[in-house]
Design a protein around this nucleic acid. Structure first.
Lengths: 335, 335
DNA sequence: TTGAAAGCGTTACCAC
DNA sequence: GTGGTAACGCTTTCAA
């Protein structure tokens, strides 16, 4: 591997000059600049990232922290992120999170510009302490899928999503409506599911429909858990005619349960999800769509800008929309 | 951030000794070792990766190269990889690939131990030149989802998968059988789809069933493309009673097309996929299962071992199995 | 068993 | 404009 001195020698200048040229510093004669550029080109020179990080005191990789396990939505966001970041000079270092304790250790470790140049959190809400540590260390931080006050964020209005779902179900005449979502105290400080539920119930209330306790299922995130919860719902003396699932992953469990019980969707049961993950189409799932891949792309845009010394605090709210497919219809017997 | 000299000072030794202790070198007195360890602990010291890479001439991050776009199977493999790698001392640097030209530039750049300690390729077959470059640079390489002679690989027997699919369809009585897979000349040198098809046709031939040309659909990878191809199939004067899709993503397109045309699955059309991606369950798709997540875990195991100076050439073949769900059944009119 | 010092490849400050 | 040089934090060889 050629080093900067190889280039310097070949161009007949000092290493300092090569560095200046390559970093785009102004104080250098046009002729020398040209000479250096061709020398570098001919040698196929590319600066050592390790040496650069060391000298600069700042790593050129962007740390992406995300709960990867069983999460198509996170995967889609990550896809959008890599697409944009691939074209940049930054490397993307991926940290998969599985337990919450893993998380706190990791974020503390990442609060060091020499370790990681910037961090982007996907579907993870940092604690105030963590935010503080990152800020103190001078590590730009952006959050995708959560709105954290002092940070750059890409987020959606969960309440609005919940209301959209409620209006949809109400409009087609449902009144016996159940909810399947995440446990309230999610391991990662994640509140989307609850935010959606609360707004959902609010709208329902305006139409004087109320979700009875036995229609409220909060489970650890996952298709299997949602499936089990749905069995309970279906086994009720008076089962719901519609279910709002807080995520498409959970909606898939709901659909599966209905199928296994021989319950016709949407004839006997309407199902509406949230996210519009790629496989929602194949499932024919009606859902509240949020731009998953785009959220990653915007996240990338924000980090890159933050790294370019843009003042922080630049958040982006993404739009929501209803995608109607074949899992919803009016209830068979309009109550 | 504390440096090695801070630890040295606190322990009353030299930096060299601290380094020896931390790297587990033998020549150091038990008492000093203990002193150093506690000093490091108290300071919360953690060595700078950049400095380490520079001094060692070897990066402590593992580069993972994968075609991320729209590929649930790749995402699942990646999940298995991060789970295992997260516990190691190595960072995982992710490179998403979108076009084949991107690929060649990247692999050339990665053939440098100072840049990346090892590389793992997911669903990507390196050219002999690329293999050569990586080997010459002394960068351990493992491949997931392809069997490349001189490299550590985690792979499956695509032919066996094709045969399994064929036997399944034949056993339930189908004779008008179509195939929907990838274009032969895949951008990334990827031959799985064709390998599956060839073996599939071989088995069919033993039962004297042949796939007519108009039953053979090779399209760019994707659900939409597969859907369009399926419309063509369904519009034929004599449409097939069964379709083998070379991947679950394509199978999902097939299912969708059938649904839109009002073709009953599995009554009028049986569909069998390949992979068993997470959403296959929700779709009720019968498929040839390969252990996706495990392939990532094994890949991680192999890189880690390779980094520990294990001799290379240690490949792992993963088992295939048939997962029967509700997308297959005997044809309505047994020919 | 331990320390001093050189070296890894860059960048940036200070002279010229 | 350009070059010399110290410094970034660590590992390792060589002496002691």
């Amino acid at each position: 591997m050629p080093t900067i001195s190889d280039v310097a020698a070949k161009a007949g200048v000092s290493a300092a000059t090569v560095s200046r040229v390559l970093r785009g510093k102004p104080q250098v004669a046009a002729s020398t600049r040209q000479r250096v550029l061709t020398a570098a080109e001919e040698l196929g020179y590319s600066p050592s990232r390790a040496a650069q990080s060391l000298a600069l005191g700042r790593s050129s990789s962007i740390g992406v922290v995300a709960p990867l396990a069983d999460s198509p939505s996170v995967a889609e966001r990550l896809g959008g992120l890599t697409a944009r970041l691939g074209a940049s000079d930054y490397d993307l270092t991926l940290f998969g999170i599985n337990t919450s304790t893993e998380r706190v250790d990791l974020l503390a470790e990442l609060a060091d510009p020499g370790r990681i140049g910037a961090v982007v959190l996907i579907s993870l809400r940092p604690t105030p302490d963590e935010v503080e540590a990152l800020a103190a260390a001078g590590v730009p931080t952006v959050v995708i899928d959560a709105n954290v006050p002092s940070l750059d964020c890409v987020y959606i209005d969960d309440g609005e999503g919940g209301r959209l779902a409620a209006r949809t179900l109400l409009a087609s005449g449902h009144r016996r409506i159940a909810f399947v979502g995440d446990v309230a105290d999610s391991e990662f400080g994640f509140t989307s599911s609850e935010d959606r539920r609360i707004a959902f119930e609010d709208v329902l209330a305006t139409a004087t429909v109320q979700i009875p306790d036995e229609y409220l299922k909060r489970r650890p995130h996952g298709a299997d858990e949602a499936k089990l919860a749905t069995f309970e719902l279906l086994d009720l003396a008076e089962p719901p005619t519609a279910i709002f699932a807080a995520s498409d992953v959970q909606a898939s469990g709901v659909l599966e349960a209905a199928h296994e019980r021989g319950v016709d969707v949407p004839g006997d049961l309407s199902v509406i999800g949230f996210d519009d993950i790629r496989s929602a189409r194949g499932m024919g799932l009606t859902t509240i769509r949020q731009p998953l891949e785009e959220s990653g792309a915007y996240g990338a845009k924000l980090v890159l800008e933050a790294l370019e010394h843009r003042p922080i605090g630049m958040s982006i709210e993404l739009p929501l929309s209803l995608v109607s497919r074949r899992s919803t219809a009016p209830p068979r017997t309009t109550a």
